[in-house]
């Protein structure tokens, strides 16, 4: 009974959140983005998209050329100066969650023309390099758990919290 209730509440909340995001910024631009690609170790991040847009204004800082923003990187401008807004703008639309599978490596190798987009980070790295790099510059939060709290799986692999080493090594001097 409780389970059913909880599911219903979750479902309603989900629908409400979807409504809220589509209302605020018109079609397609979400206010909040849930990032949960490493939920094995960390709780999902509820990324406040709206706040970042308000602060940065320039979509191209994160979305490169895909939103149709002015391209400043001369290397990208060679092809994308006037390429306009793309159909796919989300991070995961281009950055694959599994960048090192044999298939992904083959695809990268066979790509035509064999010049650009060959050193494209995977999804997790795209987030971290982009977010953390900017946070360092703008003095935003940079600790791992400032953005995503570690869950039980994370504590287990990091040997932290209730999985902390039982007998910490004594300093060598203690023997004397």
């Amino acid at each position: 009974m409780h389970a059913v209730k909880r599911q219903m509440i979750l479902g309603v909340t989900g629908i409400l959140m979807m409504l809220v995001s589509s209302v605020c910024f018109g079609a397609g631009i979400p206010d909040k983005v849930t990032i949960n690609s490493i939920q094995k170790y960390y709780a999902p991040v509820s990324f406040n998209h709206a706040a970042h847009i308000n602060k940065l204004k320039d979509c191209g800082l994160c979305h490169h050329h895909t939103t149709g923003a002015q391209v400043t990187d001369p290397n990208c401008a060679r092809c994308h100066k006037n390429s306009g807004a793309q159909a796919v703008v989300s991070c995961k639309g281009c950055h694959t969650a599994e960048p090192f599978t044999p298939e992904a490596l083959k695809q990268q190798r066979d790509q035509q023309p064999p010049i650009y987009h060959r050193d494209k980070p995977g999804l997790k790295a795209a987030y971290h390099i982009s977010c953390l790099g900017c946070h360092e510059k703008m003095h935003g939060p940079t600790g791992c758990q400032d953005c995503h709290k570690r869950n039980d799986g994370g504590d287990a692999i990091f040997k932290s919290g209730k999985y902390a080493p039982k007998a910490p090594a004594k300093p060598k001097a203690a023997h004397h």
Binding site: I157, F158, K159, S160, Y163, P165, K166, P168, A169
Partner: peptide, 20 residues
């Protein structure tokens, strides 16, 4: 994180200090 993942994957003994 790499140290933590290595420890788990290779089933190495418990570290002296947590990986964080």
């Amino acid at each position: 994180s790499c140290e933590a993942a290595c420890n788990a994957e290779q089933k190495l003994p418990e570290p002296d200090l947590a990986f964080d």
